[in-house]
Amino acid sequence: MPVHRRSPWSLPDSEVTPPALFRARRRFLKAGAGSLALSAGLASGLGGWVGAARAAVERPGKLAPLEVTGTTHRVDEALTDYEAVTTYNNFYEFGAGKEDPAENAHTLKPRPWTLSVDGLVARPRTFDVADLLATQPLEERIYRLRCVEAWSMVIPWIGFPLAALLDRVEPLGSARYVRFESLIDDERMPPRNRAPISYPYVEGLRLDEARHDLTLLAVGLYGEVLPNQSGAPIRLVVPWKYGFKSIKSVVRISLVEDRPLNTWQALQPSEYGFYANVNPEVDHPRWSQARERRIGEFFRRETLMFNGYGEAVADLYRDLDLTKWY
């Protein structure tokens, strides 16, 4: 029997606007705005708030669809447009500009793909991602994504808990951290496109963070496999941390004893830490983290502690000074 988990931040199906009603509202809003040509232009151009109603996940029909068992987590906020989710990306292997990954990531070749899990585990293994897709039940999870650059999105991911993968390799008692590594490949990620940071991109989590129910290995979004620029074919999603923790196009996961040095911390330790929990009270040295621009909205909104997932994750950091361990 499927177990339905209700979390404080989840939204019952009864509160989701049916697609037909949503589209009708959208048409109505658009018609209203259309009567004022300038304001309509400003709206779609500067904010896009015309479409900001609660949306059901509609497949864009561009990539292979994925079967899911259901939607297990959902935030009560409008989804960010698929177009915005897939054209406004940070993926430095394909360039530093937000539009660069969508333009350059066609060289990635995400299939076939293997993911090695090694280090302090009883059964190190190399998984074929196609096999993982076939053997691992997939769930849809609608999460907020908050970038350290103070913008945010709401994205319907498809994936499975990282804990399920960790269970299959049986971490040893000595394992305390999980280290993640992205692909680096001169043919599939041509050096001429890369922004000047060190590669391969590395991220890390404490083992209890990695095992947390919210921590997802994503293989799709908007009902389809991940577009290359979103980290195809498999990526991490840790919704209560800044986006740079959610490493893309992962090829290796290692269980280790010592805290891994993640790429951004290595590059600029005064600005980026290991934990990178979303925290409106701890500023980035160059900008405030108190407010964020939700992509598609005109005005900034208040940033939520742990990106709104505090009830689920605050306990992980009971004994941690979050100002020191940013």
Partner: peptide, 11 residues
Amino acid sequence: ALTGALFPNPI
């Protein structure tokens, strides 16, 4: 800005 060409973060 008015036609939406600065999408998705026009500001």
